[in-house]
Design a protein around this nucleic acid. Structure first.
Length: 247
DNA sequence: CACCAGGCCGTGC
DNA sequence: GCACGGCATGGT
């Protein structure tokens, strides 16, 4: 099955993208507005080439994952090829702090409101997600007004500690997870998402409410080591699959 | 009205 | 170490 750009961009690993009329996906990244219709469009741009992780062979990885067992075979065949995006660390950190006990639609709304409030306009109607420096003027009260709810103090803490994000590159998964969890509001699940969708740590295996269902029902007694060396990508396929099935 | 969403924190044991 | 309630907000 072919590439599934929609699932990659809108399936819950990024909150930057939206689908406009005519099958155009747009996002503000790297100080400009990107508009793409196909993966080939992304391949031509140097920034997006890296962002879409073209150095990695996702077709081969998918084939290997499908061989693992019948569930993964079904999951991979149900959705098309999914990629793991390489997103900017601060943006990703705030995004997944927002994600806790929340739904994708509302996360995107909060992401957009934070961009408009603390980022800057790069085109009429299009705002960049703020850098940590731009968010230094943040207040917990204002974040609550924007709708962040109980996550407001967590975001504040992340802004104040944003310097540690540059240290994550040198660490293995367990060390990196431990460091990220020194930020309030970051637990194992949020840390895993940040490490996968920003730092390309492919041995992450985030377990949210959907993945709990998958693990309890289809992989009782197993943990992420079963899926090695494709933990993160396997998880994405299972996540997409179970959500598309509903319940 | 209830229950849920890409969970985590604080408390109690 | 594990279990549990609480948590802001908006949708169904």
């Amino acid at each position: 099955m072919k590439e599934n750009l929609r699932e990659t961009l809108l399936g819950g690993q990024s909150f930057s993208w939206k689908e406009e009329d005519g099958g155009v996906f747009s996002a503000v990244l790297n100080e400009k507005v990107y508009r793409i219709e196909t993966l080939e469009d992304a391949k031509r741009d140097p920034y997006l080439y890296d962002y879409f992780d073209f150095a990695y062979d996702y077709e081969k990885a998918k084939e290997e994952i499908a061989k693992k067992d019948g569930i993964l075979k079904e999951a991979t065949e149900s959705v098309g090829t999914i990629r793991l995006l390489k997103q900017e660390p601060f943006l990703t950190t705030i995004s997944f702090i927002l994600s806790q006990n929340n739904n994708i639609k509302r996360i995107k709304g909060l992401y957009d409101r934070i961009s408009k409030e603390y980022g800057h306009m790069v085109e009429p109607g299009y705002y960049s997600f703020p850098t940590a420096d731009e968010m230094k003027r943040v207040s917990v009260e204002r974040l609550r007004e924007l709708g962040c709810g109980f996550r407001a103090p967590f975001i504040y803490d992340a802004v104040m500690k944003a310097d540690i994000l540059k240290d994550v590159y040198d660490l293995d998964f367990d060390e990196a997870e431990k460091l990220l969890m020194t930020i309030k509001g970051i637990g194992p699940k949020v840390a895993s998402c940040i490490l996968i969708f920003s730092y390309q740590k492919r041995d992450g295996f985030p377990i949210d409410v959907w993945m709990k269902r998958v693990m309890n029902e289809y992989y009782p007694g197993k943990d992420k080591t079963y899926f090695a060396p494709y933990e993160a990508l396997s998880q994405q396929y299972l996540f997409s699959w179970i959500r598309s099935k509903g319940n």
